[in-house]
């Protein structure tokens, strides 16, 4: 299937990226080439193959249910580009 500029624009919103018109053109072309390449997998019959999400045969690794100190609020906020003493700050989301 060929990838259109509209597809790429839609993906850019899902990916929370904003691409310039020139970037969209280029991305459409490059993603098209890469997607065409990875589609070579379609030639393999994988009907009875179990998907492998992970290389390790470990599952359900549990930690003991004991409290331990977590990051101090000041440390957690320290790298934030915009915050007050308690919160991360963002532009208004609801209404005007």
């Amino acid at each position: 299937m060929s990838l259109t500029r509209q597809d790429v624009e839609k993906v850019s919103l899902l990916a929370r990226l904003r691409l310039t018109p020139a970037e969209l053109d280029r991305m459409t072309e490059q993603m098209g080439q890469i997607v065409a390449y990875v589609e070579s997998l379609a030639e393999l019959n994988t009907d009875n193959v179990e998907p492998m999400a992970h290389a390790l045969d470990v599952a359900n690794v549990f930690a003991d249910d004991v409290g331990r100190p977590s990051l101090e609020r000041a440390d957690a906020l320290a790298n934030s580009p915009h915050h007050d003493r308690e919160f991360y700050l963002v532009p208004a989301v609801l209404g005007e």
């Binding site: 993906v11 850019s12 990226l17 490059q30």
Partner: peptide, 18 residues
């Protein structure tokens, strides 16, 4: 994200999201 990431990182994020 558009300002912070370079072209290859954007390409991979786009490919994966797609």
């Amino acid at each position: 994200r558009a300002e912070g990431f370079g072209p290859e990182v954007k390409r991979r994020i786009m490919l994966g999201t797609y």
